[in-house]
Design a protein around this nucleic acid. Structure first.
Lengths: 145, 145
DNA sequence: GTACAACATGAACCTGACTTCAGGTCAAGC
DNA sequence: GCTTGACCTGAAGTCAGGTTCATGTTGTAC
């Protein structure tokens, strides 16, 4: 059993954020002791799931929906599973986009390294768009296709 | 040379967004023809960089800063290179976090698959926290450490 | 019994990134 | 010359996800 302050430290979240989550219904049925929130293992796991779903791109109101489903027991197993399947696909797609972004960043790093070495962009411009060093050409093509 | 409408289609961005970017200074020195914005290869490449930097987590005002650097020529090569290096590290860190998120999502998918098969969570709870199937145990440990 | 830290509340405020709105310009086709 | 479509503007509105504020309560330490 933890106080809001302890949870704040455990998850490196401001207290105001945790209270905001509670206000938004992310801890349905959280316990109270003389007015103070009591975080049990249930709420701790809820927070782990909240972090996960947030990173996956889910909005707070949809996380609330999920938390309501967990209150309804076995009847909502299927919905809950589907939610995680959908999030899994979203994260996989996001990773592909980040991979492409990384290629652009790597290309730009090479670009400015070269520009710094040359003192200008003339030599690079002469190589564009299809006479770049092999590895760099791949990055360039991947992003400028 | 493209009109704002053509650029909107090319990048699947609302016209209002492109105008907003211009208002925020993301196309310094963009051309005009009888009042209308003219997007040349310069602005097209700018938009590719904008998308990249946005995905990497950079804010609009910092992208504006970068665009100003590109106006200043060779004097800012070093700053620009460093910006991309920093973004590269940020994206690499983000990918690590997404990888962890994916492990949580995979664990939860297994969890609900199993709960659906069993009709309840009793058998799963009996396996927790360290008697899960080997592959699942790894996901679980990775997330609940 | 009073000071203090840690909690509580509702309401207002903030920020970033857009979007919408009301009204105006411009070139092309009829 | 009028309509139409594509463009323009500044100002205001929206939305998510918090944060801040003013004020109040509670349990413990001195």
């Amino acid at each position: 059993m933890y106080s809001i302050g302890q949870v704040s430290e455990m998850f490196h979240l401001p207290i105001s954020t945790i209270r905001y989550y509670d206000r938004e219904g992310l801890f349905p049925g959280i316990g109270r002791q003389s007015g103070k929130r009591v975080f049990s293992e249930r709420e701790i796991e809820a927070l782990r799931v909240i972090e996960c779903l947030k990173v996956s791109g889910l909005e707070i109101k949809d996380i609330k929906q999920f938390m309501e489903w967990t209150q309804e027991g076995a009847a909502t197993y299927a919905q809950r599973k589907q939610l995680f399947e959908v999030r899994k696909k979203a994260v996989e797609a996001e990773m592909l986009e980040l991979q492409k972004t990384l290629d652009m960043l790597r290309y730009k790093c090479w670009y400015y390294e070269t520009a710094i070495a040359d003192g200008n962009e003339d030599r690079i411009n002469a190589m564009l768009p299809d006479r770049l060093p092999e590895k760099i050409q791949k990055l360039y093509d991947n992003v400028h296709k």
